[in-house]
Amino acid sequence: MAKSLPPLTWFRAFEAAARHLSFTAAASEIGMTQSAVSQQVKALETRLNMALFARRPRGLALTDDGRKLLPQVGAALETLAAATHVFDSGARSDLLTVAASVSVAQWIISPHLAAFKAEHPQIRLRFLSTIWPDDFRAPRADVEIRFGSHKQVGQGATELQPNRLIPLKAPTLEGDLESLPLIEAVGTAGGWAMWRDQVSEAAQPEVFVDSYGMALQLAMQGNGVALVSEILASHALRTGVLTRAHAASLPSQEGYFLWCSDGNSNANAFSDWVMRLEHE
C-alpha cells in the first residue's frame, strides 16, 4: 500500500517558515500561533526523517534538505492555488454564500438552521469551509464567520459573544480535572497550560486536535475534558449533551467574528439571525 502524504498544513507551515526564515513571521502570515507552526514543521521533519531547518539563536536557516524541498513544495502550493482559482469566481447572485469553519457550521449553525429556513424559505444557502484567516481574503462569500485574533480577522467585523474558554465533558464522565484526560486544541493562544497558570491544577493533555469542534466531539463521546470557546458550546450545554467540568473560565485571545457584505439583504438577514443566536 502506498504511504499516505503528510497533511497539507505541515507543508504550508514549512513553506511560510522557509520564506521568512522565522516561525513567528510564518505564524503571522497564515494565522497560527508560533508554537503551532513550530510543531507542524517538526512533525514534517519527523515524518520525512530529515532536518529542514537549523535552529539558531537569531533565527532559522534552511538545511540542504530544506533547500531541496522548498521549490517543490512552493510549486505544489501554487498549482493547488491555480487549480482552485478557476472555481473561486465569487458568489452567484441567486445564492447566499456563507464562509465558516466546520466547527461553526456543526456546533452553531446546524442546530438552528431549520428555524432560519422557516423564517426565510426563499434564501438558498451555500457553505464554504474555511480554516486559515487568509482564506477570507478572497471576496467569495456574502457572510463570513472568521476565527482568530481581532488583529487577524476582526477588521470590519463584529465579535460574537460569549468569548471565553470553558472546560466541558460528557455528563456521564466522572472525576475532576486532576484525574480526567484532557483534550487540547492546538494552534490557539489559550489552552490547558494557561488554565494551570490562572485557575487550578489539571493533568497534562493526552489528546491533541486541530479545532475546537473536534475537541467538542471527542468530549461529547466521553473521551475527556475539552477547553473550548463558550459560544461554540452553547447549544450543546443547553441540550445537556455536554456539561461544565469546572465553574471557572478563561478569557480568550481569539474569537469568532461576523462579517456581512454591504447592500445584500439576504446576507443581512442571515447575519441578524446569527446575532440573535447569542441571546437564545
Rank of each mutant, 00 (worst) to 15 (best):
T239R: 15
H20V: 02
F87W: 09
L258E: 08
T24D: 07
E278R: 07
Q34K: 14
G240T: 04
P6Y: 13
H150G: 02
S179C: 04
N264P: 00
A105L: 13
V41K: 01
K42N: 10
F11G: 02
Q198G: 02
A43M: 13
Y212I: 00
A26G: 05
S265L: 06
H246F: 13
A202K: 05
A267Q: 05
D176G: 14
D176A: 14
G187H: 03
L168N: 10
A226F: 10
D197F: 12
P71W: 11
A26I: 09
F136M: 05
W259G: 04
F53R: 02
L258D: 05
V41L: 07
Q253Y: 02
D135T: 04
A193M: 13
L95W: 01
A233P: 07
A245W: 12
V143L: 09
A193P: 00
L182S: 06
G59Q: 05
K151M: 06
E15I: 04
V102R: 07
S129N: 13
G187E: 04
S261M: 14
D142V: 06
R140G: 13
V104Y: 11
A203R: 10
T97M: 14
A247Q: 05
A17Q: 03
N264V: 09
E184S: 11
F127L: 12
P139H: 10
A141H: 11
W195L: 05
G263A: 01
S229G: 14
A247C: 01
L70A: 08
P205K: 07
P57C: 01
S110K: 15
R67M: 10
K169L: 13
E280Q: 09
A26N: 03
G148V: 02
N163K: 08
E184R: 08
T97Y: 15
P167K: 02
E45L: 04
A61L: 09
V209I: 13
A115T: 12
N223L: 15
L113C: 10
F11V: 00
S149T: 14
G222E: 14
S110Y: 07
V41W: 03
L232F: 07
S271V: 06
Q198E: 15
L77K: 03
A215R: 03
L95P: 00
E45Y: 05
N163T: 09
T172F: 12
A157E: 05
R12P: 01
R276D: 11
E201P: 00
